[in-house]
Design a protein around this nucleic acid. Structure first.
Lengths: 342, 342
DNA sequence: CTGAAAGCGCTAACAC
DNA sequence: GTGTTAGCGCTTTCAG
């Protein structure tokens, strides 16, 4: 509450000039050991904390990373945030979050805000306006890592998930268990869903299973309700599948509801597999076999990438990392006795 | 990327002094309309964005609110964050998040960080070190709103949920449906759980139902797994309850699993009700009747409270708001035909 | 290795 | 109403 202690106070306390204090703060190596210790003691004694704003005036950035994503409360957003926060905290960096959700206005507005704050860099999760945001970021000179965008359009570091591989794993798993009529419950159209669908189709074709195309339904949102409707349609259809792959856990919940409503059970009457960005699948009544996407890990990696970029802004070459989801087999596709548990 | 445009550039462009520009930025009312418009135009033309750091040197705070919580990925954390972010974004404020999770170090460390950033205020969700954090915040002169703390220990604005009322509602609901042996699956000990338990006991006693004490089990974490173990114990016990109230949705998931495993079904064999900080209960196979806690709304209110406090720091009297959860009846406690749906 | 001094972009008196 | 001016706390040459 009281007057804040400045670098000047520290200097007086330690009997040195403010420049020296500044040096021990920013380039400790350059200061004589004895002096350094004396200054450090003064800092501790006075509980000095440097005012970040003053540094910004010299073109330095604040020790803060921003995360922009379509929706903070979506499983992917939650997990990404968790990963970023974890890594950032470990490095002494703060984390700002922002969801593009209800924003009519262009993301440029928020980007300006970030620039005004002098933020260190931005982790941008793909969504509606990814390109627009990336462009604004670039204009303001803010380093960015793009997460989970399947279109390599913008020039920036990126990090994405190999959803196609995940889908292929899932389909293979189901084929191995004898399923030949595998439906796919997709979410709203997006480049990501497109990649998955393609992989599903390919995997099926490769094994000569029923043509997948006819058994794909698109839910109009990644919600339980939408998943239920989609599944209801599937169950009422002509050729009932013996297995369903869902683009999201929420959709899988809906499928479970539809099955239950129809008096059917997983996995006996129908096997269910879903993409999962978090760990929700594990707590379903019949634990869900999932294509587990390590989104939190993506967040951690994104932070490291960002720092690597800002460490050497000039010589930097954009990195592009692809992560592989892992198939976690649970009871929804296989009986408890043989399933991997959890 | 290029040299940033300053207030000085704007002044030149508009043909006024920098003081005038500063005025239209901070006290537009004081500037002549004509001048104001001219300056505004210059600002737009140059895409000027003020450097927040420079304001901090004058003791002004950054337009940023911080949220500190025990765990970002917990449903309550997610919802709180969502609410705060929503309200803050609407007001042009940024949001920083932090979870105390794996921090051995005192929260004081992060509080110092926030002070260095010149953050506007902090929303502090109750957890392990609430008091410690609140104290540190106070020392650094950062305004704080404490969310969901049931011990009114620190002197600050606060916002809590009337969990006792929620528990009472739930018990009453079950009693009305004829249940007389109602178990309570509690989470790890905390002041919050204590309040709930007390309310459960009272509500039961008031109606002369079976003594609740003996039917309370404590799960050692708010997880599905822990809930399952607790429920397994309950099912194996001497007097099997006809209804269970769970302190959390995750625990309820576990209960569902245990029931399923034992060949039992909700609501017929056992009614299940759970506290829910989000909307997860709705997507269970048998949609869960929940004591719905409006945590996102708490987040929104918390932001408003914070701003009210900082608007009049001197005359301010701490506010204390209590929110009421709402019982949402779904199929887990009542058959579909009569349930409220969703 | 250390200190003196010149700002960084902005706000807030205070004069005009 | 508007302009002049003195810093805010810090980093960073540049001398010593």
């Amino acid at each position: 509450m009281q007057r804040r202690v400045t670098i000047r106070d520290v200097a007086r306390e330690a009997g040195v000039s403010i420049a020296t204090v500044s040096n021990v703060l920013n380039r400790p190596g350059i200061v004589a050991a004895a002096t350094r210790i004396r200054v450090q003691d003064a800092i501790d004694a006075l509980e000095f904390v440097r005012t970040e704003g003053a540094r910004q005036l010299h073109g330095l950035s604040a020790p803060v990373i921003a995360v922009m994503m379509p929706e903070t409360a979506a499983p992917s957003g939650v997990e990404l945030t968790r990963g970023v926060e974890q890594e950032a905290t470990g490095l002494g960096l703060g984390v700002m979050i922002h969801s593009g959700r209800e924003e009519q206005a262009a993301p440029a507005r928020y980007v300006n805000f970030l620039a005004a704050q002098g933020v260190h860099g931005v982790v941008l999760m793909a969504g509606d306006r990814t390109d627009q945001a990336a462009k604004a970021l670039h204009e303001r000179g803010l380093p960015v890592v793009i997460v989970d965008d399947h279109r390599p359009r913008v020039s920036a570091c990126s990090l994405r998930m190999d959803d196609a591989a995940g889908a292929a794993d899932a389909v293979r798993h189901l084929l191995e268990r004898g399923h030949r009529t595998i439906a796919y419950v997709d979410g709203p159209a997006s480049s990501r869903s497109q990649h998955r669908l393609q992989a599903v189709t390919q995997a099926q074709c490769a094994t000569g299973a029923t043509a997948a195309g006819s058994l794909t339904v698109r839910a109009d949102a990644l919600t339980c309700e939408a998943g239920r409707q989609a599944a209801d349609g599937l169950l009422a259809g002509p050729s009932r599948p013996t297995a369903v792959l869902c683009a999201d856990v929420a959709l899988a919940s809906g499928v479970f509801q539809a099955l239950h409503h129809a008096g059917l059970r997983a996995p006996d009457d129908m096997a269910v597999v879903g993409f999962d960005d978090g760990m929700h699948g594990a707590s379903a009544v019949v634990p869900l076999t999932t294509v587990q996407r390590p989104v939190a890990e993506m967040g951690r990696q994104a932070v490291r990438m960002l720092l690597r970029e800002t460490a050497t802004p000039s010589t930097h070459e954009h990195e592009h990392l692809v992560m592989r989801p892992e198939l976690v087999v649970r009871e929804s596709s296989q009986h408890a006795s043989t399933a991997a548990g959890r």
